[in-house]
Design a protein around this nucleic acid. Sequence first.
DNA 1: CCGGATCCAACGAGATACTG
DNA 2: CAGTATCTCGTTGGATCCGG
Lengths: 106, 106
Amino acid sequence: MDEKEIRYAQDALYVLSGKWRMPVILALHNGLRRYREIAQSIPGITFSMLSKELQIMELNNLVLRMEDPDFPKHVEYKLTEYCESLYPIVESLVNWGREHRKVIST
Amino acid sequence: MDEKEIRYAQDALYVLSGKWRMPVILALHNGLRRYREIAQSIPGITFSMLSKELQIMELNNLVLRMEDPDFPKHVEYKLTEYCESLYPIVESLVNWGREHRKVIST
DNA sequence: CCGGATCCAACGAGATACTG
DNA sequence: CAGTATCTCGTTGGATCCGG
């Protein structure tokens, strides 16, 4: 491991970090597509926060935004396949975090 | 994946995030043990920052601090085996981050 | 030599009000 | 319905000074 690889790791961490990143990914992963639906499924999030999250995620190719040209206010979001390439990492984070709770609580 | 698992993942992210966490882990991984050595191997870090990092990491059982009772100011640090359980995650972060650079730069 | 304490700056998060 | 703009605030990161 060298300094360049550290920067790669930090880039990846940046993509996953932040208070709402994981909850938004979960909501989309669970099949929610509409803005309002997504917001309501995440306790505590505001429209403002969700708006910012989706913009950043779109820039990072994690999310696809699709607006129906015939019904201009009908918008749907979905995770990209690229975002799904994160799942193995997320899973290993979950497993490590579960064990970590036990270690810290002792 | 549910909300509880998201919290586990966020706990794990918390352990790995922050500007200096990964560089410090790397320095220790590379065999550096003395406070001054570690600080000098990480460009840009201050003693103050390193001090805080090591304290937090010790609390999370990532680092072991050993003070020689005969030479009170001779202190050595090393990663715990527990910290090494993070390596698979770090490696997958590095690999994903490397690919991500290519995706974003296009 | 190995830090702790204190104070300041930068950034991310949130509340609120407003728009097409 | 689906957002955006702005402002405030708390947290994290950093500089500097001080002490065992």
